[in-house]
Nucleic acid binder design. Structure first.
Length: 121
DNA sequence: GTTCTTACA
DNA sequence: TGTAAGTA
């Protein structure tokens, strides 16, 4: 199907569909004058992309995840699990950094309560 | 009329 | 992401 049809079928703008392709999340064949041609299961792929995006995954992670869906059953599960555990580790590292920043900020605030001059230091 | 690429807001 | 321009 053509990009306009896929757009109407998924409710995703043509602009965004091209962006997904640019990010390596969606693939398409080219025909005639270079027009994109999508497989019949493209709507399902787009739905999967939107689901993962809604789960807070970055386009980068989703891109790495796409090859997993080529397989099925346990293979798919192992592949996805591997990427998601990595994603979880990254997320926890960020939480740790934010927590440290929070502690530091609270410290500055607490000190300024006793001596406002501390704010300029 | 639809799609394409590039580029700017 | 939207939109404009100039094509195919």
């Amino acid at each position: 199907m053509k990009i306009g049809e896929l757009s109407r079928a998924t409710g995703v703008s043509i602009r965004l569909l091209r962006y997904y392709e640019e990010q390596g999340l969606l693939v398409s064949e080219r025909s005639a004058g270079g027009h994109r041609q999508y497989a019949a299961d493209a709507p399902a792929t787009v739905a999967r992309i939107r689901g993962l995006l809604a789960a807070g995954l970055s386009t980068r992670v989703i891109r790495d995840l796409m090859p997993c869906f080529a397989g099925d059953g346990i293979a798919l599960q192992a592949c996805v699990l591997d990427h998601l555990t990595t994603q979880l580790a990254d997320l926890e590292a960020r939480i740790a950094d934010l927590s440290d920043a929070r502690t530091a900020l609270l410290g500055i605030l607490d000190a300024s309560t006793r001596s406002p001059a501390q704010l300029s230091a």
